[in-house]
Amino acid sequence: MDYSALWLSVRLAATTTLVLLAIGIPIAYWIVFSTWRGKFLVEAIVALPLVLPPTVLGFYVLLAIGPLSPVGRAYARLAGHGLPFTFEGLVIASVLYSMPFAVQPFSAEFASVDRRLLEASWSLGVSRLETFRRVVLPLSVRGLVTGIVLSFAHTLGEFGVVLMVGGNLPGVTRTVSISIYDAVQSLDYAAASRTSLLLLIASFVILASTYSLQRSVWVKPRH
């Protein structure tokens, strides 16, 4: 089995999930609580990766972080190397690719918090941001967990975007799904099936434990 590819995928999924937690919460907050009429545009952009072919997304990300774009050139000047075909480049692409899997569960859960709880909090003199931190976030644990798990699992198995942006550099950008593809290409079905089975079991365990957790995640009454 290609352990370095597996390890790379886990690192990529974990990093992507952390980044999504950091930027997904503010984006979801904004989507739920903004009164701007045009916010459906932002919602649509966030949801794009759900329907866009990964190769298309990967292609645009490649252009955006490559030496042809100002962003790519600025990064290259600062870091000494370009973003394409690096781990950092993969993280950027994965964050965009998995964004709906974090932001949508987050925002659905934020929106389901009883609005009167927010109004009660405001009337008690607590600011909107503090209310979000003290009421909305703790009541949205389920949605946060769902978003985290889905982002992780989704990133773990991504293929097209990674291939477009990262290529296939062992230990740097060769993720587990690309390693499976390589194994099949070289007719090494035994290696492909071992890795595939591992990925299948891992995904199933992650999802199953999330769903079971959701049933009892909330504060249980003390008796």
Binding site: D114, R116, L117, E119, A120, S121, W122, S123, L124, G125, V126, S127, V135, P138, L139, W218, V219
Partner: peptide
């Protein structure tokens, strides 16, 4: 003035306590 600045107390028909 936002509700936070009015120094009022508010009680709805439902108690709307923070469940957590």
């Amino acid at each position: 003035r936002a509700p936070q600045e009015r120094r009022i107390g508010l009680v709805f028909q439902e108690p709307t306590l923070f469940p957590h």
